[in-house]
């Protein structure tokens, strides 16, 4: 891989040189992955954010504002909503997108503020453990919901 020349320093020929187009940006020397994970994470934050705008604001409108809001929510109300595959799909999509969006957000925040390698590693392990647990539990609850449970 050829590194783009940025400047020619020293001597009478010193001048700025614009890097030729379509060369890859030079990667930092070490400790960086060769994958495009960060770019996909960046795109995912925007795409999931757009979907969550509808999913979460819709959820809040129905559960907290319309028709008495949270005062009317109870087991029977949930059973009525989850009788419909539409609302189960809505809630499952909200769960997965919100949890992954939030996990990536916290991953970025941990990377920003936890300076020691060990601290960063363990905070992220804790984060990913909670993500796995929340997704597993939430998905099981939506798929195995029993309206006749006493």
């Amino acid at each position: 891989m050829t590194a783009p020349v940025v400047t020619v320093t020293g001597g009478p020929d010193e001048r700025p040189v614009i890097a030729p187009p379509r060369t890859r940006r030079q990667r930092p020397a070490r400790g960086r992955s060769r994958s495009n994970f960060e770019m996909y994470a960046w795109i995912f934050m925007r795409m999931s954010g757009l979907l969550l705008l509808v999913l979460v604001l819709g959820h809040l409108l129905i559960m907290n504002i319309l028709d008495g809001g949270v005062q009317r929510v109870n087991f029977a109300f949930v059973a009525g909503r989850w009788a419909s595959p539409f609302w189960r799909t809505w809630d499952l999509a909200t769960l997965w997108l919100a949890e992954l969006h939030g996990t990536n957000g916290l991953r970025v925040i941990i990377n920003d503020y936890a300076e020691r390698d060990g601290t960063r590693f363990w905070l992220k392990m804790l984060l990913y453990t909670s993500t796995f647990f929340v997704l597993l539990l939430g998905t099981l609850v939506i798929f195995t919901f029993d309206p006749n449970l006493s």
């Binding site: 929340v134 939430g138 099981l140």
Partner: peptide
């Protein structure tokens, strides 16, 4: 997610 998971425990606890 934890409080909603109580719908799998019992209607009363939820």
């Amino acid at each position: 997610v934890l409080d909603t998971a109580l719908v799998r425990v019992s209607a009363d606890s939820y």
